[in-house]
Design a protein around this nucleic acid. Structure first.
Lengths: 135, 135
DNA sequence: TATTTACCTACTATGTCAATAGGTATATTT
DNA sequence: AAATATACCTATTGACATAGTAGGTAAATA
């Protein structure tokens, strides 16, 4: 389940990619275009800055900007940063977790396959794949 | 994200499939074999009965039993009943929901594709695929 | 009648989600 | 220097879901 954190963050990234010509895009504008509460976006955007997905500049004329080209971001990376993990089951979130039922679990294989599929799906798609509206 | 509801229910189904020879399998035994709280399983198992995944019989010698052959259950069906929906995003859970951003949403296509992939993954797998331990 | 089982209602502790509120710091423009 | 526009920060909240626990009732068998 992808929450608004990941979904909104993706839309912010797309919005920034579409406005690459402008130096810095104010969050106010993004919030208005996307129809999302600016106050809520502030929280998400802060995490995105911390994770080096975007850069922010304060003061008049400030705003946010991508720090790479759209084709250099994978969707998986963006979502994983915002959601914490893309793993669909608790036992696969922490890679170091050594489940005692590991050797006898009848469903581990299923979840591992599912986990791989999700990972591949999102890491094989780039931000640039989403900026063209007519797809 | 698949919760314990879906995951435990799947393990109960596998356990019942493995013990098809016994007429009725008491929940106590399943809980012990699977290492899951019996009290918690009671809640899940009730939903499974209501959804006609399994049948329960009271009294001594009672317990639970599958009502079809293992190859006649898809994993998708079991998980969808327990989780409510397999959709990874809120806007796709309710089929009738007509999102006002539908025509302009930059991410709808991504989520629709993702949703289909998940659906196919689980509906193309049957309970019988999970009962053989050596896979 | 005693026992075993399913079945039922209610409660709870913890955490996450999706925000909101109100402020501070910094850069630019006038 | 002042006004303005922006990012950035801390704290709080209401609603809901998760993962159970507690204590009982109903029905079937031995």
């Amino acid at each position: 389940m992808i929450s608004t954190k990941g979904r909104y963050a993706l839309r912010v990234m797309i919005d920034l990619a579409r406005n690459e010509n402008e130096e810095f895009v104010p969050l106010k504008d993004i919030a208005a275009r996307q129809g999302i509460s600016k106050k809520y976006l502030e929280i998400l955007v802060r995490d995105m800055v911390t994770a080096n997905l975007i850069v922010g500049v304060r003061g008049k004329g400030g705003g946010y900007k991508l720090c790479r080209k759209p084709e250099e971001y994978t969707i998986g990376e963006i979502l994983e940063i915002m959601e914490g993990s893309l793993s669909p089951v608790a036992c696969l979130i922490d890679k170091k977790f050594d489940c005692p039922r590991k050797s006898t679990c009848d469903t581990l294989h299923l979840w591992t396959e599912f986990d791989s599929m999700i990972h591949d799906f999102f890491y094989n798609r780039k931000l640039s794949d989403l900026i063209n509206r007519d797809l």
